[in-house]
Amino acid sequence: MFDNIQFASVGEFFQMGKYTFHVWSVYGLFAVFLFVNLFKPRMQRRQFIREQRQKALRDKQIAQQSVEQERADALGEGQ
């Protein structure tokens, strides 16, 4: 089975007869297609989680600030 490789040399393999451009551009396009569709969702997910974290942090800070503000106001009123 593994002895009937269709090419006598590595050079011949890269040459693909007279269809070098055609065969390799199809496989190149296929590689780009696989890469984009597998890694784009991963990047988007990472981006989304980062955004949500920042938002959560901001909300927390705002909440804390308003609590401090209230406390300061309460102190101010007390004096």
Binding site: Q6, M16, G17, H22, V23, V26
Partner: peptide, 15 residues
């Protein structure tokens, strides 16, 4: 690597 060349279309069979 292993698919034989086609008698008409040669190596484009790999496409």
């Amino acid at each position: 690597l292993y698919v034989p060349q086609d008698y008409q279309q040669g190596d484009t069979i790999r496409i």
